[in-house]
Amino acid sequence: MRIYERLGEGFREGGPDYLPSLAVFHCRWCFPDAERVRAMLPERAAEKALLVRVDCTARIEAEFVAKAFSEGYDGLLVLGCELGECHHLTGNHRALKRFALLRNMLSLLGIYPERLRLMLVPPFDEELVRASISEYVSELGELGSFRYLG
């Protein structure tokens, strides 16, 4: 089922009030609890966010990103451990390099790279995480719908 069929009346095609749909991938080692992650999202965005727990940020391949966008999600957020804290030692290094390239690739293909965000954050500083997510969501809102604007 495509996301915009599921969105119902909340779906608008962009503009200042636009509420973006989010795909959130969270590392199981620093953000094990999906409900806790959902609670950290801005209230209305949380309702239509898709949460996926992954074993490591390095698990997130280009396929995931491609699928999220082709299914119509407006943004893809990845929450992972800080550098040096990875359970698999270098998993987040790999993710960092991969996402650096992916963001450039998205831009070359005509997708705003801001739609893809990797946050390597301290999981216990909840306020910080919450604040940066809401900043990201409002940025996404300004970009508008992926389907509509690009």
Binding site: A66, K67, F69, S70, L101, M105
Partner: peptide, 23 residues
């Protein structure tokens, strides 16, 4: 990852995946 039996493939799935694999 790529829907079967549909052309053209969804933007950006097919081409983004292939481009990344070859990057």
């Amino acid at each position: 990852w790529v829907r079967v039996g549909e052309i053209p493939p969804e933007y950006p799935s097919f081409h983004l995946i292939r481009a990344f694999h070859l990057a």
